[in-house]
Design a protein around this nucleic acid. Sequence first.
DNA 1: TCTGGGGTCCTAGGACCC
DNA 2: TCTGGGGTCCTAGGACCC
Length: 441
Amino acid sequence: MYALVDVNNMYVSCERAFRPSLVGRPVVVLSNNDGCAIARSNEAKDLGIRMAQPWFQIRHLRREAGLIALSANFELYGDMSSRMMTIAGEYAPRQEIYSIDECFLDFEGVRDDLAGIGRELRAKVLRWTGLPTSVGFGPTKTLAKLANHVAKTADRKPGSYPSAWAQVCNLADLNADELQHLMRSTDAGDVWGVGRKTCARLAEQGIRTVHDLAHANPATLRGQFSVVMEKTLRELHGTPCLDVEDAPAANQQIMCSRSFGSPVTEVAALEELVSQFASRVAEKARQQRSVAGAVHVFVSTSPFRKQDLQHSPSGTLPLSRPTADTRVLVGTAVQLVRGMARPGFHYVKAGVMLVDLQPDHQVQAELDLFAGVEEPVAARRDRTQLMGTLDAVNQRFGKGAISVASAARLEAHSGSVAAARQEWRSPRYTTRLDEIPNARA
DNA sequence: TCTGGGGTCCTAGGACCC
DNA sequence: TCTGGGGTCCTAGGACCC
């Protein structure tokens, strides 16, 4: 049996843990630049606010409905996440951290009362972190996800499911009739892996509920969609096709991209931004002990501004020698952006992606005939040491304490160009000593 | 005025190989 | 008249996830 543990409205719940006055009120957390709602409290959902809905469309609800908006505080959310994951991980032999707010637990061979374990886990996470969770159990990951959806929905919308299924739901505890009822009253689109497009195409064939989906012909659906759909169907029938992956593989791509606070027209300013993004991905690559084989860069104008001329070029350059050296990656990224950005366009977004990643300890032998021989041992050692020092200094004194000059120039006149809006960010209560909460004001 | 930032996997089609 | 057959690799694009 598998469990899926999921924090309810994660980002909002993190904020509420430190500001109880937010409990019971409609709250949203906004994306970078305070652009879109990326988390909503139940009260905010009840106002009809959709996921990723632009802030300018809902800001009127501040006055009209007392909506509270907060800027994303990812440092806080990341720290709260690791606390919650540690507690949850103690309850099962194996844990897969699936995202910032959910994990799968593998209870293979555990014969105890799982719902009881789920309730205990839930209570402990709540007591120790202040985060409310929902727990679903099922014989496959897809069914555990479904059970989690039921647990969450029964708690949020009284009458949708029996209240006994709220917060913690174990499908194995349900009898055949209850299971039927659950399958018939749950939308196919609520199944893990069935997204908007697939849902619409299924509906055309009359497949609307989980029950319909589970009774569809696997071979037919596989032909229409893909092998992923067939796996989903088998998982719905209780045959595991997906295992818990407790040793996550290194990422195959590493990306850093941002929308700007205001449009950028100067190529020089784009170079500075791209330098910053390249520095960031280099750091991430070193963290997972990978080196990149190529650098991909894109810039784009705003598709929402129909009156503007659109220009969204992108390009990739292979590296003669795979590396995670900030200087090389920044240089390559700048070369790319210089070659494709044109003056006069209103660029609103840019990004840098590292691709062809490989482990840094098994870098392939020299591939480029013209790059000369393999890097001398001493040069390689110096490079590793320099990057190690860079990371250590930035770790100790804060991000950007040391950076390459092309990325640092931006700091000097930041605020003038592209500085992200973050009007309502809460303190980083758990990770900055000077932002630690006061017990007594 | 104002529209997120990461990732994964699968498939189709073309280039290329013998 | 009639123009092979089987394979791999790469890329772009689309769908999904949170």
